[in-house]
Write a protein that binds this DNA or RNA. Structure first.
Lengths: 223, 223
DNA sequence: TAGTATAATATTGTATCCAATATCCACAAT
DNA sequence: ATTGTGGATATTGGATACAATATTATACTA
């Protein structure tokens, strides 16, 4: 995206990690499930080596847990940990948002508008994956002016975690409608340099998803 | 530490990663330096495989940078990135501190006191590595009551980054005395449940280190 | 029958080998 | 002098082979 020409085309572990990540995020690999290197190696028709690298990457992202001589399993979070993930999102995103606002230029605003329109236009049925991606892209664009690479990398990881549970339990419809207005407001307040008002919206925005999600997961797990 | 009996004894990549991390933190491996798998393999008298795994781990921690077919190098941060690291520490530590205070018990306070004493003892010994470790342990103990595993893991990584630069310059840093006092105050305010006052101290505490450090690194790099 | 020891199997960890890619250097062309 | 090309060398990436460890199944003892 933007201008970052991807010079080094991605390596085997990269594509495998991407695929595995998607499989975890869309719930094909369930939480707690153990992952067998050999099985994956056969599946992707490569040796176990690139699989191991891919798993290590996902371990670093927090999607997979690696134990020493016992292999990998898909991470399963407790309810309080899921809550924590969203609290982390609030913490980091609010920080980025507030830092970004004073630095935003018309270019930033344009880009945000563009993504926002795409998002609202793309009523492709119920493609949660695509919507989630656009959603991240939008938030990311909103914070771009803060120019905080490290914080952004960090946010990506946290967001990935939250996205997993969002996608597992919430349909696009449940998410999109209330989010739509929030997203507009976040942009408007940013343009008007109304940091405090924007901050409130952002906090509410994430908190709403958090609570919705926790309810659903709690009832589901109670069974 | 606490109760965590390390059941699974650490694997080869673990010990290698630990050693490499220490070598980076204490400056034996300089920033920007490229790391040759083969050389390390010979050095540790193992094959390149565990080296690769160790490097991957350090890459996840943000201490080394892995590029696709070109190997690893010790990460070198720009001045603004170093500033960002400390801002992240402030963001996360303040959050943890404020959440912890209302939940702290006498046990927590005891443990903090104990570490504090050890720490002040190690001032005199001039053991920089040990001091850094104790410093982290102290902050960690201070936030333990918040009971936020994910946030703590995150903080560890951020702290590791900052510690690297702190240790590079600590020998010449005159920050010990004020730091000592800050640490006492953080504990006192926590015991008195004075969150706002504590927050201020914490922010000042980290900010002071940040500014001092940025000055030193700036002048050093200007040469 | 429950529990424990032991053997068989499966799975992960490490080493070695070969392939792919990048880096370096000499040399030619403009 | 600068840029470009080709090949030699070094270094990383991946596959296979073997070793170490964990898991499961089996047999044995109390």
């Amino acid at each position: 995206m933007v201008g970052k020409r991807t010079i080094a085309r991605q390596s085997l572990p990269d594509v495998i990690a991407d695929d595995l990540r998607e499989r975890i995020l869309n719930g094909e690999l369930l939480e707690g499930e153990t992952i067998r290197q050999g099985a994956l190696a056969e599946e992707y028709d490569v040796s176990r080596m690139p699989i191991r690298e891919a798993l290590k990457r996902l371990d670093a992202e927090g999607l997979v847990q690696l134990t020493n001589n016992r292999g990998a399993s898909v991470v399963k979070h407790s309810l309080s940990e899921i809550a924590e993930i969203f609290d982390l999102r609030i913490l980091v995103e609010v920080d980025l948002y507030c830092r970004a606002i004073p630095a935003m230029t018309s270019k930033n605003f344009e880009r945000c508008h563009k993504i926002l329109n795409e998002m609202e236009a793309s009523y492709d049925a119920d493609d949660v994956a695509k919507w989630g991606e656009l959603n991240y892209e939008y938030h990311s664009a909103l914070y771009a002016a803060a120019d905080r690479t490290l914080t952004n990398d960090l946010l990506r990881k946290v967001y990935l975690q939250s996205d997993r549970y969002v996608r597992m339990h919430l349909s696009v419809m449940q998410q999109r409608e209330p989010a739509k207005e929030d997203h507009r407001m976040l942009l408007t307040f940013a343009q008007d340099q109304k940091i405090d008002e924007g901050r409130t919206v952002l906090i509410d925005h994430i908190t709403r998803t958090k609570n919705q999600l926790l309810d659903m997961i709690a009832t589901k797990r109670a069974v």
